[in-house]
């Protein structure tokens, strides 16, 4: 594995390798000394063209726990507008000797462009590009699902297992969601059955070619679901007529106490954050015992440690030495 740009870059074996490595990383995080010497002397740059403190911190913690040198490079505001271009920024990072660049960019394809344009030699990790993908989010979500739904919450118990036959319902603004795109791809690769639920305006034209089912009716899609993932919905979408009002959205597509009761005993509730409490998810749902929302955050660090490890240290035995 040279880069991680899309969840589609991972076949089943590669995805399981990341998840299993993340299990090992999680185990090390239970120790008294959390820091591993693995990436000593390597430089990881967090290149963020968009504000996302939570994602940046997660990658930063992951890199530091692997003993990498971390440089945070905030280039907010320079995307898409004129100013310092992606290319000039990339050339700067290359001059600094970045071994890996973790990039968050407002333009779909930003990470892809960085990886394939010849501007830099290091590995590129897509930390979210526009409305395209966010593959490490999908990996941490799959890690969380596997832990609960396959490993019965026993650390390491799900190692080597995929999500075959598990039913995942993803609800919300699929059209603008990089989380949904990456999740659909990865969950399909891992054998899960995904149903997307959204008002028709928030499903992209072309969604019928995706490896998943779609529905406009949340209640029916909760039946039989093993995991329910609520996506963040921006209230401003109603100004562009994607839905009439926050209240109507919440009533039709929000997860509330009534809908929690429709779920099976074991069904987990997920959200990539940050949440709009009261819009797509009620406090009852967010704070219920089913909720894995806080756990997703800590799993994020383990998964990102695994990704950085496999890209920078483990590549020789992963993809035949393509580092």
């Amino acid at each position: 594995m040279r880069h991680l740009l899309s969840a589609a870059d991972l076949d089943r074996d590669a995805a399981l390798r990341v998840l299993d490595t993340a299990e090992q990383m999680a185990a090390t995080q239970q120790r008294e000394i959390k820091k591993l010497p693995t990436l000593r002397g390597r430089t990881v740059v967090n290149l963020f063209f968009e504000d996302s403190t939570r994602t940046r911190i997660s990658f930063e913690a992951a890199a530091k726990r692997l003993s990498a040198d971390v440089i945070n490079f905030s280039a907010k505001g320079s995307s898409v507008s004129k100013g310092e271009s992606l290319k000039d920024t990339a050339l700067t990072l290359e001059a600094m000797g970045a071994d890996a660049v973790v990039v968050r960019h407002g333009a779909s394809g930003g990470a892809h462009r960085l990886a394939t344009s010849g501007w830099i030699n290091g590995s590129v990790v897509n930390a979210g590009d526009g409305t395209h993908e966010h593959p490490t989010q999908a990996l941490l979500d799959a890690f969380t699902m596997r832990h609960h739904l396959v490993g019965q919450r026993e650390p390491g118990a799900a190692t080597g297992e995929d999500l075959a036959g598990r039913k995942v319902t993803i609800v919300g603004d699929v059209l603008h969601s990089r989380v949904a795109r990456s999740n659909v791809l990865l969950l399909h690769t891992l054998g899960a059955e995904v149903t997307l639920v959204a008002p028709p305006t928030l499903l992209p034209v072309g969604v019928q070619t995706w490896p998943c089912a779609t529905s406009y009716d949340l209640d029916s899609a909760l039946e039989g679901a093993d995991a329910v993932m609520m996506l963040r919905v921006q209230v401003e979408r109603m100004n562009a007529a994607y839905f009439p009002s926050a209240r109507e959205y919440s009533r039709r597509y929000g997860l509330d106490a009534r809908r929690l009761r429709l779920m099976a005993e074991h069904t987990i509730v997920m959200h990539p954050g940050p949440m709009n409490r009261g819009l797509e998810i009620s406090a009852d749902a967010a704070d219920s015992a089913r909720s894995t929302i806080v756990e997703q955050v800590s799993n994020g660090v383990s998964v990102r440690m695994a990704v950085l490890y496999l890209l920078l240290a483990g590549s020789d035995d992963v993809d035949g030495g393509t580092a």
Partner: peptide, 10 residues
């Protein structure tokens, strides 16, 4: 706007 744009998020 079509199958490819849906995947690429453009």
């Amino acid at each position: 706007e079509g199958d490819v744009s849906s995947v690429l998020g453009l």
